[in-house]
Nucleic acid binder design. Structure first.
Ligand SMILES: [Mn+2]
Ligand SMILES: [Mn+2]
Ligand SMILES: [Zn+2]
Ligand SMILES: [Zn+2]
Lengths: 138, 138
DNA sequence: TATAATAATGATAATTATTATCATTATACA
DNA sequence: TGTATAATGATAATAATTATCATTATTATA
């Protein structure tokens, strides 16, 4: 939270009421992956006149600052969640039956990444999704 | 190729000239990741009257049969490539500078997957993308 | 073979998420 | 205070994908 504010400051990013509302929505919904429209409706509770364009603009900006993480699971729309630490995000398991998305903490990709770096790549980030069935659906 | 045909048969999937054209395009472009529109233009060389709707329908169907693999890298459009073996695909490295996409063969996710299966999940597939810089851009 | 049922196609309309435009409003700061 | 700049919201534009529907091709059947 302090980290976020200083990061915004560093990028001369004005913390308007609208942006505050959006950030609060994201902070209050850690663990879920919200679409722009879902963010809009939640933010409207805090700032009724907020428009969808502002939501898109803010989400995009926050994602570029790595304050949010942007990803897509099903349904051709991007979803956003608060990014815990800088880069190197957690992984996701997508249930092919109920659509539930679970978080996976462990990393375990270092081995692959260092192999790639030996081949001359510079790896900045990764995105890993598992598809299968959650315990309830299996 | 034989595998593909028998898979199509098994699903009573008529191999029309249009579908043959699309399949040929995919077979001739292994290693690259084509968008629906790119497939359309290539397929038009083989069957000039083919329409975009047929391309979308066919790509979708082939992806459902795991003959093609559908993924998105940059640019909000899906891309398709021939799926080598059944499920469990190779990984991708996306260069943040030039956009080049390289293939990564090794798997290395078994450890994570078995950990998840111990927790009650049934893992069918995974999708792993690395973001960073390719040797040329680094 | 002739005919009926079904599947596939292509043109194009509709949908949907996202981005661009632009006039208005808010904020910073000289 | 006045002026430059940034942010906003309404809405138009864009672009990928999906739906619709009349037409055509294929298969099954009498
Ligand atoms: Mn998550
Ligand atoms: Mn590939
Ligand atoms: Zn489930
Ligand atoms: Zn590169």
């Amino acid at each position: 939270m302090d980290v976020i504010h200083s990061k915004l400051d560093r990028n001369n990013y004005r913390l308007t009421d609208q942006r505050k509302a959006i950030l609060d929505v994201m902070l209050e919904n850690q663990g879920s992956h919200l679409s722009a429209e879902e963010v809009l409706w939640e933010a409207k509770k805090k700032f009724p006149n907020i428009g969808i364009a502002t939501v898109y603009r803010t989400l995009e900006k926050l994602a570029n600052l790595d304050i949010l993480h942007k990803s897509m699971f099903e349904g051709n729309k991007f979803r956003y969640e608060l990014a815990e630490d800088d880069k190197h995000h957690h992984h996701h398991v997508v249930c092919l039956n109920c659509g539930q998305i679970s978080e996976v903490s462990g990393d375990l990709l270092h081995e692959l990444e260092s192999k790639l770096e030996q081949q001359g790549y510079k790896i900045i980030d990764h995105e890993l999704k598992f598809y299968g069935y959650c315990p309830a659906c299996k």
